[in-house]
Nucleic acid binder design. Structure first.
Length: 494
RNA sequence: GGCCCGCUAGCUCAAUUGGCAGAGCAACGGAUUCUUAAUCCGUGUGUUCUGGGUUCGAUUCCCAGGCGGGUCACCA
């Protein structure tokens, strides 16, 4: 018994250890190497429904999850990756010895393999009439209760395997997450995008506004950063001549953890040469609508949490209109940080003006507008101070050609016409350096190597980032990011 | 990090205005050859998160800590 096992739990483990010994005593390996199954649970059920044979023969395997003993017979359910199937065990079919062995030595939680013929019970359930039965792996600990399942969040996250065993909704959510990612790949591959891999350990972090995790590279003798974004490397590839590139990978941001933030997050970033953010908006709508359709057969996501219609085109509102509608303020009337900070304070948004006008405007949007956005919406044309890597609008240099996408109060995409003027880019970095000096720890760091690349010429480019975790939340109806991350980070127990 | 809430059996939850800790499921023993949260008979398995304090007596009250949840701040 390991040290984590409470003493009283031994009462639950000991009988199973005894059964393990008895299995070995009668020459049965409780942990055999394999089992030749012919069908998954779902495969067996559909074969029966197709009715090509009267009583199809099959071998199935899975974890024992329900156990109804009926004296000389028993109904049990096993669960595999495809679902559940019922087995019917009869003393006169299995023989006295094998039947008794099952009753005496098998427990809920064990993996077993069974072979037999399919039939339909009186109550209509397609079931395997078992002719031979095999122990595939003995379970030594009890599973969570069958009806209520596991509801303690801490245990669900720390022992996710128990959550997955007990909850079909949980399994469904994570299968959807995988479908979302593979469908995005399929869409981008189909459009001629090249999937690439760029460094996770970076000598300088950039491409986003966040504090990084720091690590040490022994052989190079210096600190490196876990990336907060892929952006500056993907742009180097655009400069290098790949017209369309994307990467789906983890970013790391050393920030708070809450319902919509995980320090380790999965991000899609894609860049396409010769297009602007208008085209990227259409791409974004198309990706999300197609992914939703892949899952639900329609772009309408109708869950317990919300109903969201991702059918393009989505609603669009400019940054300044969004602020104006919410506050009556025209942000153009406040060209400096001090003025807008004072105006924001009237709405309970308190920001130190030393951090810059962009920071104040960001806060206004974040606090007063974003939480109220329910329908899928593009907020477009961000003040240039908030967008150090985005191109200025042609008609108004105070604004950047940038959008963010949100729904149900959750921001899930950020995109812009990428700044490709190296002189303007240098200026923007310098402004960020000032903000950093004033105390903005998330301000971007000047990256000479990136500027050098841009000085060699970068084509006009549209770029997009989609938070995969958040998109998964929206598409699966979860309000907490931990529900869509298999192993969310928790404090370690000692 | 601040504030608020929670932690009781393997699981889901009760209860104790400070006085022997109790249900269902699971488990264990028995009955049952068509069950579906099977049913019927019997058995309660516990460091009430941890450490202090107050008290004749603490699971309950007080203090500190741990872990979790919510919220605020920061970020996507």
């Amino acid at each position: 018994m390991d040290s984590e096992t409470p003493r009283h739990a031994e009462n639950l483990v000991a009988p199973r250890l005894a059964k393990l010994d008895r299995l070995r005593d009668i020459g049965i390996d409780p942990f055999p190497h394999n089992f030749e199954r012919t069908h998954t649970s779902a495969g067996a059920l559909s074969e029966f429904e197709e009715g090509k044979e009267d009583s199809p023969v099959c071998s199935v395997a899975g974890r024992l999850v329900r156990f109804n003993r009926m004296g000389k017979s028993a109904f049990v359910h096993i669960q595999d990756g495809a679902g559940r199937i019922q087995l019917y065990l009869q003393k006169n079919v299995l023989g006295e010895e094998q039947f008794k062995r099952f009753l005496d030595l098998f427990d809920i939680g064990d993996f077993l393999g069974a072979s037999g013929t399919l039939f339909r019970t009186r109550t209509g359930e397609v079931t395997v009439r078992v002719e031979s039965l095999h122990m595939l792996s003995k379970s030594l600990r009890p599973l969570p209760e069958k009806f209520h399942g596991l509801s303690d969040h801490e245990t669900r996250y720390r022992q996710r395997y128990l959550d997955l065993i007990a909850g079909s909704e949980v399994r469904r959510t994570f299968r959807m997450r995988t479908v979302i990612i593979s469908e995005i790949r399929r869409i981008l591959d189909g459009r001629g995008y090249l999937e690439v891999e760029t460094p996770i350990l970076q000598p300088l972090y950039g491409g986003g506004s966040a504090r990084p995790f720091v690590t040490h590279y022994n052989v190079l003798g210096r600190d490196f950063y876990l990336r907060i974004a892929d952006e500056l490397y993907l742009k180097r590839l655009i400069i290098g001549g790949f017209d369309k590139v994307y990467e789906i990978s983890k970013d790391f941001r050393n920030e708070g953890i809450d319902r919509t933030h995980s320090p380790e997050l999965t991000m899609l970033e894609c860049y396409e040469a010769y297009v602007d953010y208008e085209e990227i908006m259409r791409l974004t709508e198309s990706i999300v609508a197609q992914v939703a359709t892949k899952i639900y057969g329609t772009p309408v996501v109708d869950t317990e949490a919300w109903r969201l219609d991702f059918t393009p085109p989505w609603r669009r509102i400019s940054f300044s209109d969004a602020i104006r509608h919410q506050t009556g303020l025209d942000i153009d009337d406040y060209p400096d940080a001090a003025g807008i900070a004072e105006a924001a304070a009237q709405f309970g948004v308190i920001v130190d003006p030393d951090l810059g006008r962009g920071k104040v405007l960001d806060s206004l949007l974040e606090k007063l507008v974003n939480p109220l956005v329910e329908e899928p919406t593009f907020i477009v044309d961000y003040p240039v101070e908030t967008s150090p890597l985005a191109k200025r609008r042609v008609d108004d240099e105070r604004y950047a050609a940038r959008f963010e996408a949100m729904a149900a109060g959750i921001k899930f995409a950020n995109a812009f016409s990428e700044l490709n003027d190296p002189l303007d880019q240098r200026k923007r970095f310098e402004e960020q350096a000032q903000a950093r000096a004033a105390g903005d720890e998330e301000a971007q760091v000047l990256d000479e190597d990136f500027l050098l690349a841009m000085e060699h010429g970068m084509p006009p480019t549209g770029g997009l980032g989609i938070g995969i975790d958040r998109l998964t939340m929206l598409l699966t109806g979860h309000r907490n990011i931990r529900e869509v991350i298999l192993f969310p980070q928790l404090r370690t127990k000692n």
